[in-house]
């Protein structure tokens, strides 16, 4: 006990004041409320921390994933950070396929959290720092409306390591669960089978579940026909999903990359529904299914 009671009370109110400083009000622009939310109540110089660009969309509007599909545009951010601060790329949650025949788009709905890592400089001599950004978005329903907001967030420098904000813990956990996860033992490879791309997905050896359905969302905008049905099914020890190339005559890319979204339970012990897929294309065609019944886990 280094401080007496009056000093303690003063400190408490001071910390409380700093905590409220970290909160920033959402900026509403039409059907979107935008804000910058920090995962921590403070930051420590030289130690990266996470913030979210939160876009709360009124129903029935949707924004777009990094690959928007047949039309649309992903939200973009222009950071205005203090000298020495840097921001990482926005990390997007997995999208939802929105069919408006003959088109297919990949949208983000409801409470959208885009995460970014902020790296403060090792030397920071002020008591706080203000992170600001211009966020641009396109939202569509029957028609489309572009929008923009200026958002900002002020965080104090903590006495030690950055202190997590308990009020935001659940929201950040939920936002992280919607990011594509590392494959965690799943292996992927890509093949061209006549007029189809095939993504072969082999679960880890100890995987006991079943994956009755899954959807693939490619990172590249021009790789597959977004509106074509995707056929998912069992294949030997694993699964395969068939995709229709956008241009069957185009040269094969090096990889078939994107996110594979399955049911809640498929990634044992993990809340993630989306796995990050970077599958190299094999030169050879897929052998007939019956010819390779004992495929093991190595691609």
């Amino acid at each position: 006990m280094r401080y007496g009671a009056p000093m303690k009370a003063l400190l408490t109110s001071w910390i409380f004041a700093l905590a409220t400083l970290a909160a920033a009000a959402p900026v509403r622009n039409g059907p979107v409320a935008a804000e910058l939310v920090a995962e921590t109540r403070s930051f420590a110089p030289g130690q990266p921390f996470t913030v979210a660009v939160r876009l709360a969309l009124d129903a029935p509007w949707h924004a777009y994933w990094t690959n928007p599909g047949d039309s649309g545009l992903a939200p973009a951010i222009e950071w205005k950070l203090p000298a020495g601060f840097t921001a990482g790329e926005l990390q997007f949650p997995y999208p939802r396929a929105i069919a408006t025949p003959p088109f297919m788009t990949y949208g983000l709905e409801g409470d959208v959290w885009l995460l970014a890592t902020i790296a403060p400089p090792a030397e920071w001599n002020e008591e706080r720092a203000t992170l600001a950004a211009t966020v641009d978005w396109l939202i569509c329903d029957e028609y489309c409306v572009p929008g923009s907001a200026e958002v900002e967030l002020t965080l104090p420098v903590g006495a030690g390591p950055a202190e997590p904000d308990p009020a935001q813990a659940a929201a950040f956990a939920a936002a992280r669960a919607r990011l594509p996860a590392d494959p965690g033992g799943w292996t992927f490879r890509a093949l061209r089978e006549s007029d189809r791309f095939v993504l072969a997905a082999v679960p880890p050896a100890d995987f006991a579940g079943d994956v009755p359905a899954a959807e693939f969302f490619p990172f590249a905008e021009d790789l597959i026909q977004h509106n074509a049905p995707q056929a998912w099914g069992r294949d030997g020890a694993g699964y395969r999903i068939e995709l229709v190339p956008a241009d069957p005559a185009a040269p094969l890319p090096a990889t078939l990359s994107g996110v594979l979204v399955g049911p809640d339970s498929w990634h044992a012990g993990s809340p993630h529904r989306a796995l990050r897929v970077v599958a190299p294309f094999s030169d050879s065609e897929v052998p007939p299914r019956s010819a390779n019944p004992e495929r093991n886990n190595t691609p």
């Binding site: 047949d70 039309s71 649309g72 545009l73 569509c140 028609y143 905008e221």
Partner: peptide, 10 residues
């Protein structure tokens, strides 16, 4: 190239 814009309202 990939066209960009609003979807055609068929």
């Amino acid at each position: 190239t990939k066209p960009y814009g609003c979807s055609v309202k068929y």
